Structure formats: C-alpha cells, structure tokens
Computed example of a mutant assay.
Amino acid sequence: MFTGIIEELGIVTSLQKDHENLNITVKANFTSALKIDQSVAHNGVCLTVVSIVDDTYTVTAIKETLDKTNLQALALGAVVNLERGMKLADRLDGHIVQGHIDQTAICTAIEETGGSWSFTFEYDPNLSNITIEKGSITVNGVSLTVVNSKKNHFSVAIIPYTYEHTNFSTFEVGTVVNLEFDVIGKYVKRITELN
C-alpha cells in the first residue's frame, strides 16, 4: 500500500529484456534503506526489489505490467516518481493507493495558471473507470484531486512543490501516464453494477 506522496525522483540507469519481462535499474537516494523483496512504486506501479548494487536497485516488470502501464516506454535516463510502501504507523497524507495501475491516459493540455499548473488527461472510457469531481486519482503515482470530471477525461491542479518534486515537470501534450482510480470508487461502482 502507498499514499501517493512521492518521496523522490529516480533515474533509470539500465533496461534489460529477459524474455517478456523487463528488468529496470534505478538510481535513487534511498537505495541504501531498501532490502530485497521490498515494494517500491515507480510512476505508481508497485514493483519488487530483486537486486541492490551500490546506489542502484533493480525491479522486474512482467508482460502484464508492461502492457497496461507506461513502463514499456521507459528509456535510459528517464525520470520516475518513487514511493516506498507506507508504514502502518504513518499518517496517510495522500489517499489509499494500491500500486495497481488501471489504465494509461494521454496528457491533452497543460496550462500555467498564475503560479500553478492545470493538466488535462484523456483515457479510454470503455474500461469502465470513473472519476468524480473532487475525488481522488493517482497520476504516475501522485495522489491528486480531480477537477473537471467528464466521462473520458479530467484535469488536476498542480502546486509548484508537486511540479518541482515529481516528473510532472517533464510532461508535454502527448505524454502517456499511468492512472490508478480511487479504490473506494471502484468498489462502489462494482456494487452498483451488480444491483
């Protein structure tokens, strides 16, 4: 479990194919605090640490993960949002995030609005995911509040701190991002579909 509060930005230093899997090596300041088998969210995707060498660690993404996320498009030097699993005794500063990506979306608009930024994302509505006005959404692992919720798109407002401390500063129109919709909303939607 995660909170959607990004701890730091990591740099991809190696990408190695292994059959249909991809071994991703990341350089991060918190590497020395990691251990094998620990979960780390990468752009919101929960992956298991399989190797640690100096200030880098490696995780493996399987085909299912690559098919459903933007990790398949990673390149050497890419900047990824990182968050370690939450501790039960910590405050939940974001919202409940599982690290299980529901689908990707495309950034369709970026607007600077007097010291903050508005980002709009469009997603495939055929996968039955929903947003609600002022509800929670996770974009590339960042816990955010939905603004302007529509059937297949929504916007989020980004404060300067978030812009500077996440990979939102690298987004352009056309950037593909990972979405994890609010887990409570997913359960409510499923229950209403069954009745």
Score class of each variant (00 low, 15 high):
Ile110Trp: 09
Gly115Asn: 02
Ala109Phe: 03
Phe171Arg: 06
Ser149Thr: 12
Tyr123Pro: 00
Val146Arg: 01
Val142Glu: 03
Tyr163Val: 15
Thr108Ser: 15
Ile96Val: 05
Leu144Asp: 07
Val147Asp: 03
Asn167Leu: 11
Asn129Ala: 06
Asp93Ser: 08
Glu172Lys: 15
Ala157Asn: 12
Ser116Trp: 00
Phe171Ile: 08
Thr131Trp: 05
Val142Gln: 10
Ser149Pro: 07
Gln98Trp: 00
Ser118Phe: 08
Tyr123Val: 00
Glu122Lys: 14
Gly115His: 05
Thr108Lys: 08
Asn152Ser: 10
Tyr163Ala: 15
Glu172Asn: 15
Ser149Gly: 10
Ser143Gln: 14
Glu164Trp: 13
Thr131Ala: 03
Val97Tyr: 09
Asn126His: 03
Thr138Met: 12
Glu172Met: 14
Glu112Trp: 01
Glu111His: 13
Pro160His: 15
His100Phe: 05
Ile132Asn: 09
Thr162Met: 10
Gly135Asn: 10
Asn152Arg: 09
Ser116Val: 11
Asp93Leu: 14
Ser169Asp: 11
Val139Gly: 10
Thr131Cys: 09
Tyr163Ile: 14
Lys150Pro: 00
Val142Cys: 12
Val139Tyr: 02
Ile101Arg: 11
Ile137Tyr: 03
Ile132Lys: 08
Val156Pro: 15
Gly114Leu: 00
Thr145Cys: 14
Ile106Ser: 10
Asp93Phe: 13
Thr162His: 14
Ile158Arg: 01
Thr170Ala: 08
Thr113Cys: 04
Val97Ser: 15
Ile101Gly: 01
Ile158Trp: 08
Gly94Thr: 09
Glu111Leu: 12
Gly115Tyr: 00
Gly94Arg: 01
Gly115Thr: 04
Glu112Ser: 04
Ser155Phe: 13
Glu112Arg: 12
Asn152Trp: 04
Ser116Phe: 01
Thr166Val: 10
His153Ala: 13
His153Met: 15
His100Cys: 05
Val156Tyr: 12
Thr113Phe: 00
Ser118Pro: 02
Gly135Glu: 04
Gly135Met: 04
Thr145Ile: 06
